[in-house]
Design a binder for these strands. Structure first.
Length: 228
DNA sequence: GCGACAG
DNA sequence: ATCTTGTCGC
């Protein structure tokens, strides 16, 4: 299935987003047991002009790193609130191709359907690739939720106009909760459990934490980023 | 009209 | 996202 071409404009991105958002599937599209989990993140350097995308594959049994890749390319669009996925998807697709295999589930730094148009980067990534994907975000999302207990692993629905669009999850004690939401081919009910299953000592789950570290390390050292 | 808005 | 030291808490 070929996605409609994007003309590179803001208006074009909005139109394509409206076309793709209804294609999101909120049912588990993966089979258990899960074997490989992917973590994906994008960092920027050069005043936001250069994108550095990282992809990490983790063994779901022991969390061993099976593969890790980083790619660098000129950013195709500036950051526009609500259209983050159009800025970050191109390098992510590139890095996905370079990995030795496709993950059973992809965890992407950013929003899934916990997004004003219900189409954050995790949804865009999932719809574009067919890979089941979910999003984990650090900052305040759209919507509202009840207070969370000070218990590791506690979670409560994130709602907007009565509709549940994700979960607020206390992934680590004494840390602000993270926002998790299904991106594509993952059920709402599966999302928070999946994230907690791959979270260890840090606030972010291991696949995303490692990918973010790779992407920002690369972004922070333009010298080492240009070759090989 | 104004502010908010993942990364 | 990124620019950035020390500092507080687990």
């Amino acid at each position: 299935m070929t996605a409609p071409a994007w003309d590179g404009t803001i208006e074009g991105a909005r139109a394509l987003q409206a076309m793709l958002a209804p294609q999101v599937v909120l049912r588990d599209g993966f089979t258990k047991p899960l074997r490989v989990i992917g973590g994906f993140a994008v960092g920027f350097s050069g005043d936001g002009a250069i994108a550095h995308a990282a992809g990490v594959l983790i063994d779901s049994e022991n969390l061993d790193v099976l593969d890790a890749q980083v790619v660098e390319m000129p950013a195709v669009m500036r950051y526009v609130p609500g259209l983050l996925s159009f800025r970050e998807l191109p390098p992510l697709l590139d890095v996905l191709e370079r990995l030795s295999q496709l993950p059973d589930v992809a965890m992407v730094s950013g929003a899934g359907i916990a997004h004003a148009q219900r189409f954050g980067i995790a949804s865009h990534f999932g719809v574009a690739t067919g890979v089941p994907a979910l999003g984990v975000a650090t900052k305040a999302p759209t919507g509202n939720s009840a207070a969370l207990q000070q218990v590791r692993g506690a979670y409560t629905p994130l709602r907007e106009r009565g509709e549940q669009i994700g979960w607020m999850l206390r992934s680590k004690l004494h840390c602000q909760p993270v926002t998790v939401s299904p991106g594509h081919r993952i059920a709402m009910a599966s999302t928070a459990d999946l994230v907690m299953r791959y979270t260890r000592a840090h606030r972010l789950p291991e696949p995303i934490r490692l990918a973010m570290r790779l992407a920002s390390r690369r972004a922070g050292h333009p010298d080492t980023a240009s070759h090989e």
